[in-house]
């Protein structure tokens, strides 16, 4: 599938596609999954599959690689069928090949309960000629009867070193210079999501040229410089409301998204040794409520001011700096 795209100009192809692993054994970090699947592929005796795990850990890649290894690369035909989010059907054009088709259902957790129930019978009826592969982020949204018909594979978030290797490999191929510091930032920004790391890298290269600076990565990822968040937290700890208001106004005027501010503030707060557990718990609850309100479309400025003022209240309350 990826082969046909090769004649397009290189810049128009996302690197996530360009550097997608082609065989199951190339998939990084998921050793358990890879071992089991390699064995199954040798005998071409495949159970129904259920892949779950956070985004960017290689679920779709593995599924496509299985298909490639079973049938050869030219056999893929992608169809989008109504009612299903994304369906790839793989026909069997090459002999000898396994006597079944592979049906990949991507984003299966956004299927309705009814659709999943309807699949139960279908799966059994056609199990002779079809293997199903469900891909989802949240296994809890797949109904139990479906999950029990499949072999479950959990994909772990990628470790930073594994991600670093892959990123460095891509940098080498694309002649990009990435310093150690930028690499660490990229890892921190993407939080174990390789796809996000690669997309961020590519955007950064597009914007800033082949020498990638730390600041460009932060900009492209929509991250806020840690100093600003630190200042905001300090303002929350101070007892002056005016100072707090000034910081919040500054953050909004700088165009930072309120949810991003909260996310980074939360990270900083959790690491903070000065605050007691009770204080942290109160602060987190306030953030959770504000996040819901923001999703509902409430005003960013007001919500941020609200959440930080609550934080100030919690952090300075009862005078209890847990010493």
């Amino acid at each position: 599938m990826q082969m046909e795209k090769a004649d397009k100009p290189a810049s128009s192809q996302p690197w996530t596609e360009k550097y997608r692993p082609r065989t199951v054994s190339d998939v990084a970090h998921q050793t358990q999954v890879v071992d089991t699947l390699t064995k199954a592929l040798e005998t071409a005796n495949l159970p129904h599959l259920l892949f779950y795990g956070p985004p960017g850990t290689g679920k779709t890649t593995t599924a496509l690689a299985i298909a490639r290894q079973l049938y050869g690369h030219s056999s893929a035909s992608v169809q989008v069928i109504d009612g299903f989010p994304a369906v790839h059907t793989f026909y069997a054009p090459r002999y000898p090949c396994p006597p079944y088709k592979l049906l990949i259902l991507d984003e299966a957790d956004s299927m309705t309960q009814d659709a999943q129930n309807a699949l139960r019978r279908t799966m059994e009826t056609y199990s002779k000629v079809t293997r199903f592969c469900f891909i989802c982020n949240y296994v809890s949204r797949i109904i139990e009867p479906l999950a029990s018909r499949c072999a479950k594979f959990r994909f772990k978030p990628l470790h930073e070193t594994v991600m670093g290797e892959r990123i460095n490999f891509i940098c080498e191929q694309e002649h990009v210079q990435l310093s150690e510091e930028s690499l660490a930032t990229l890892g921190a920004v993407s939080g174990g999501d390789l796809r996000r790391a690669i997309t961020t890298l590519q955007s950064a290269v597009r914007l800033g040229g082949p020498v990638v600076k730390r600041q460009t990565i932060l900009d492209v990822a929509g991250q806020i410089p840690p100093e600003h968040i630190q200042q905001l937290l300090q303002a929350c700890k101070s007892r002056s409301f005016q100072e707090l208001q000034k910081q919040v106004d500054g953050a909004i005027c700088n165009g930072y998204a309120a949810q991003q501010v909260m996310l980074q503030l939360q990270g900083l707060l959790l690491e903070d040794a000065e605050a007691s557990d009770i204080q942290k718990a109160g602060a987190l609850e306030a953030m959770a409520v504000a996040d819901k309100d923001l999703v509902d479309g409430a005003d960013e400025h007001l919500q941020l001011l609200h959440v930080t003022s609550l934080l100030q209240k919690h952090l300075s309350s009862s005078g209890a700096r847990a010493a």
Binding site: F241, A290, D293, D296, G297, A298, D299, L302, Q303, L305, H306, S309, L310, Q312, K313
Partner: peptide, 18 residues
């Protein structure tokens, strides 16, 4: 009293959106 007033403002602005 500021904190409480901010709380009410945020609360009613959210309601307003809904």
């Amino acid at each position: 009293i500021k904190q409480e007033v901010v709380h009410h403002a945020a609360f009613f602005e959210h309601r307003l959106q809904e």
